[in-house]
Design a protein around this nucleic acid. Structure first.
Ligand SMILES: [Mn+2]
Ligand SMILES: [Mn+2]
Ligand SMILES: [Zn+2]
Ligand SMILES: [Zn+2]
Lengths: 137, 137
DNA sequence: AGCTAGTTTATAATTATTCTAAAGTGAGGT
DNA sequence: ACCTCACTTTAGAATAATTATAAACTAGCT
């Protein structure tokens, strides 16, 4: 099965019509070797880089949100005022370099939590994230 | 020593002139029994609540930033696009309720990390935060 | 091919934050 | 107490990030 067909199916089974725009964005996001951490701004630059705009900014916003709702992207915690997303949707942890504003995944087995608190009553734990902020030595 | 004098000194020793505005904001932030988690919006509402505006929004922004730089406030990690601050400046962890957008402190001893990764070379760890997102049972 | 609900797009609107520059003020010197 | 001046406050403008609007487009069905 071709990559394009594959992506189209992934979209369809998520209730998303495989439009040209969504396929192009999905290719860019999900056909990578490594986890991709991005903002709408960086993704937009990436998608529309060879000078000529191909996909509108509004569609980038719409699509990222649609992919997130479908569970193909995760929103990441930062102390910034713009939203960061992650193609790695497993529960995992990050280094955050405040100078370069870059996020990097931490190998799952490199963090061990030996004790976590009980959630308040009426609530359950949806996700647990560790963010390690870095600074120059 | 009066509370006001006390606050004035705290500001002076941080290199901040104890202006009326800063003292009023500092009182509101630092004379609480419990940790206060807030955004500029909520703080502004709090400060200027009895109808008549007393302090301009720009000053709230300036002061929060000044207090953060002086180490009296901490910026908190969230997945929102507005900045959250914390009067608890010790390294500590949070529950985050995505429905109510509310943060609550987690008792320090309720989280135990038995293993944390080495920082990348040239960097050292500035801070480590655990955020536990909650959802309805 | 024709229909239609879902999608894209340019653009406007909204929200959060920062900037600007004029007016106001705390504090040290007289 | 009065002067002075650097620091601070303020209203409003500017910028940045995101969301809303509504007209044009299109995937997928008949
Ligand atoms: Mn954030
Ligand atoms: Mn913003
Ligand atoms: Zn990641
Ligand atoms: Zn806290």
């Amino acid at each position: 099965m071709s990559i394009k067909k594959n992506i189209a199916n992934k979209l369809r089974t998520s209730g998303l019509r495989p439009t040209n725009q969504r396929i192009l964005i999905a290719k860019n996001l999900f056909e990578r070797d490594n986890t991709f951490h991005f903002t709408v701004e960086t993704l937009n630059r990436e998608i529309n880089k060879n000078g000529n705009k191909k996909i509108s900014l509004a569609t980038i916003y719409n699509t990222v949100e649609a992919f997130k709702k479908a569970g193909h992207l995760k929103k990441i915690l930062t102390s910034n005022t713009k939203s960061y997303y992650d193609t790695n949707i497993r529960s995992h942890h990050h280094f955050y370099d405040d100078e370069t504003k870059e996020l990097t995944d931490i190998d799952y087995q490199k963090v061990k939590l030996s004790k976590i608190p009980n959630p308040p009553k009426g609530k359950k734990i949806k996700n647990l994230e560790v963010v390690i902020s870095l600074q120059k030595l």
